[in-house]
Design a protein around this nucleic acid. Sequence first.
DNA 1: AATATGATGTGACAAATGTCATATCGCATT
DNA 2: AATGCGATATGACATTTGTCACATCATATT
Lengths: 206, 206
Amino acid sequence: MKVLIVDDDNLVAVSLKTILSSDSEIEVTGIGNDGTVAIRLYEEQQPDVLLMDIRMSGMSGLDAGSEILSKHNDARILYLTTFNDDEYIIKAISIGAKGYIIKQDFESIIPAVKSVYKGQSVFGNAITEKLPGIINKKKTFDYESFGITPQEKEIIEEIAKGLSNKEIADKLCLSEGTVRNYLSNILRKLDLRDRTNLAIFYYQNR
Amino acid sequence: MKVLIVDDDNLVAVSLKTILSSDSEIEVTGIGNDGTVAIRLYEEQQPDVLLMDIRMSGMSGLDAGSEILSKHNDARILYLTTFNDDEYIIKAISIGAKGYIIKQDFESIIPAVKSVYKGQSVFGNAITEKLPGIINKKKTFDYESFGITPQEKEIIEEIAKGLSNKEIADKLCLSEGTVRNYLSNILRKLDLRDRTNLAIFYYQNR
DNA sequence: AATATGATGTGACAAATGTCATATCGCATT
DNA sequence: AATGCGATATGACATTTGTCACATCATATT
């Protein structure tokens, strides 16, 4: 199985080569440090799997992958990243990458490469937990377990609709001051700074 | 690595056991033919990976998996199926399953089980091609068409992360006043009241 | 009856937010 | 050279927001 490695950080690229080369089935055919190089090396070597960083100076891994896939729609690209940004996961899957795993998780890399070689898609540990959220916003946050009372929960719902303190007070028949007190308690319990961050939290954990 | 196999068709279940047992790292701790049995055996054996059919007479694999995951949210469930229906894929991912592969693809099963054991998610050959389509069913809002400039878009991104005007100013090397002006323009263009509503809008149109 | 508790309220305060009018500067068009 | 435009900036201002200390009051507990 021929593997091409492309990583911005040459030290990482070399380490990956060492790790992968320890497996008898894997042959590392090349190392690159940039998106444009990835495209060129891919053309030259036609590797079975391209193991590539997302964030790179110069051409990004996503752009390079996108270009490679437009020519070779059977290319098997496995992204490596230090970040596990939702945005990147979605983009990576969208362009047709076969996987997305965290760089640090060394011992998962070889099985991941093998799975991808067999045509499967692989998503690493940290990403795995986010998949349900990405596919379908169904995993709800358990506010109760953070000591949020039903009344406070109600306030959260209203803030998530974009209402001001005054409006919430009118709607729930409370004084504005009380709403503020509740909000203040909510923010402390959830360790958030302000209503905007609460709204963000709400929509990210729906 | 302890693996529990559950399949409606006993012949398939036994075949799977034979295949998996050929690997020295894998120990098949049990076989079941129904969802309710899956739940009971899971409790008894606490396997590392549960390899289960989706379609089964009696309780379905999805319902059983859902119940198991509600008690053991670290359960690693790998679904096997003869069908590759989008609905099932989405449901499987939604409940938090770690994989979804096609039964017929025998030689992919062992690496898939191993990847799942390591905490990764695996999606088989046939499914892999559908992932981009599944992910892309989301409708992204076109900010440009509402006259939002790239600079303003950048501000929106930062607000959606929960940053204050001051923080955004520092990050983008602008004065706080300028950030306020931009925000003011954004709110007018999108007809929103404040940053909280902007954040809500952002997450609802992602 | 005495006390504790929880829900609600008030007032004061500092900080952040949003709006507006206006200014500067560089660049492109005329 | 004159003009206009877009990006950036400033200052003033009213409003909203978040925090805190403390008050009130009904109900439940002892």
